[in-house]
């Protein structure tokens, strides 16, 4: 969808934009808070008009993210004749989606958000009374606790629910680069609460 022309840019420098929300503690970066910051890469495409870049950066500042770097390729154009921009930011984990929503609502075309966020994959097999112990709850707990996302699942319960026999499920999870070992640890802990065994790859291997 082509992006709408954006409204006139805020003339103030980007680093002072957040002063607008100075009284809104929720929108501040951690600055002494204990929230962990996460790095993200966002690729945008901008219409070649003055003020576009600044407009695109405002949602980042408004949501309390730190701008780490901007790669603005003014010389090259995307297939749609726009200018590709890559922005590296860091922000508390729960702010990232808000930033993307704001960007989109301002008509900024987000081409790719965080290809690196889930850089690794890990496959595990769960064994136990998976259906009777509420598999969707187990999956939710795994996602919530490990920060990994379940990419797909295959369940095999040949004896059916309610049977004494164990069922199995193969999960493929997307995890942040370098975090598969801790994701597996978390899955083991979550699964243990329901007496579910986890067959995982060797540490450090996918």
């Amino acid at each position: 969808m082509p992006s709408e022309p954006t409204t006139a840019p805020d003339e103030r420098p980007v680093d002072t934009v957040e002063a607008d929300d100075g009284d809104d503690a929720a929108a501040e970066t951690d600055g002494g808070h204990e929230t962990e910051l996460q790095a993200h890469t966002i690729r945008l495409e901008l219409v070649d008009e003055p003020g576009q870049l600044l407009a695109a950066l405002k949602p980042i500042a408004d949501n309390g993210a730190n701008l780490l770097s901007i790669f603005h390729e003014r010389g090259s154009l995307t297939p749609r004749g726009r200018i590709p921009v890559e922005v590296d930011i860091e922000c508390p984990p729960d702010r990232f989606e808000g930033i993307l929503d704001d960007l989109r609502s301002r008509g900024v075309n987000v081409i790719q958000a965080d290809a690196e966020e889930y850089g690794d994959e890990v496959t595990v097999v769960l064994v136990g009374h998976l259906v009777d112990t509420d598999l969707s709850d187990t999956l939710k707990n795994i996602q919530d606790c490990s920060g990994a996302s379940v990419a797909d699942i295959d369940l095999s319960a040949p004896a059916g629910a309610g049977s004494e026999a164990h069922s199995s499920a193969r999960l493929r999870l997307r995890a942040r680069a370098g975090e598969t070992a801790s994701v597996v640890e978390t899955i083991r802990a979550v699964a243990a609460e329901k007496d579910i065994d986890v067959i995982a790859p060797l540490e450090g291997r996918r």
Binding site: S156, A157, P158, H166, S168, A169, D197, I199
Partner: peptide, 9 residues
């Protein structure tokens, strides 16, 4: 405790 289904998956 490993069922055949785990090996199949």
């Amino acid at each position: 405790d490993i069922p055949g289904s785990a090996l199949e998956l």
